[in-house]
Amino acid sequence: MHTDANCIFCKIVNNDIPSYKVYEDDDVVAFLDISQVTKGHTLVIPKHHAKNIYELPSDVASDVFKAVPGIASAIQRETGAIGMNVLSNAEQIAGQTVYHFHIHLLPRYGHEDGFDAKWETHNDAYTPEEMSSLAAQIKQRV
């Protein structure tokens, strides 16, 4: 397991600083986010340090994503949330502030619960040919 001594999440993994853990196994830790954007806001992290999704090894990703449904379901059952946002931010432009890969589980209680994600669609911005070309280019890099 690779950790970074300067990373706040690695310090949580190593029990160097306190946290409110809701789940832990050999590879993954989940704990309440100190910000509590909504009640039950939880972070799911690998014990292996990786900056973000771009650096996350596939076996580590598998461990994390395997744990997410059970944790999300437990949060929903305990809080009575009527929905859940599951998200991860990569790099500053996307809102990443801690550079250790993590997934936010944000229970939702209604439109005025403290969280809002704004989505603007651009359905008419790209032709079918442009969409096909972009898909093919991405596919070549996977």
Rank of each mutant, 00 (worst) to 15 (best):
G114H: 06
C7G: 02
V60P: 00
E55A: 13
V28A: 03
Q96I: 01
K66I: 06
I93A: 15
G80M: 05
I93H: 12
G114K: 07
H49F: 06
L56Y: 00
A90H: 14
Q140C: 01
F31Q: 06
A74M: 11
V60L: 00
I93V: 14
P69I: 06
W119S: 09
D63E: 12
P57R: 07
A5C: 02
L32H: 07
R108K: 15
F101E: 07
G114D: 02
S73M: 08
V29E: 04
L43R: 06
K11H: 10
D124V: 03
D33E: 06
G80H: 01
N85T: 13
H122S: 12
I53G: 06
L43Q: 02
F101L: 15
Q96A: 07
K11M: 10
A61E: 08
I8L: 11
R77N: 12
A136S: 14
A67T: 10
N14S: 11
M1L: 10
F9D: 08
G70T: 05
S132H: 08
L105C: 04
R141E: 12
A30Y: 03
F9I: 05
E91H: 12
H104C: 02
S19P: 04
P18C: 03
P46W: 02
G110N: 10
Q92C: 00
A81T: 06
H2R: 15
V60R: 00
C7V: 06
D27L: 04
D124F: 06
Y109Q: 09
H104L: 04
I103L: 15
K39T: 14
H104W: 11
V13W: 01
S58P: 05
D27I: 00
K11N: 11
V64K: 02
E78C: 07
Q76D: 07
D116S: 14
V142H: 10
S62R: 11
I93D: 15
I8C: 08
N123T: 11
H48R: 09
H104I: 05
F115V: 14
A74T: 12
V98P: 13
G80I: 06
Y23V: 08
E78W: 00
V37A: 15
P46N: 02
E120Y: 08
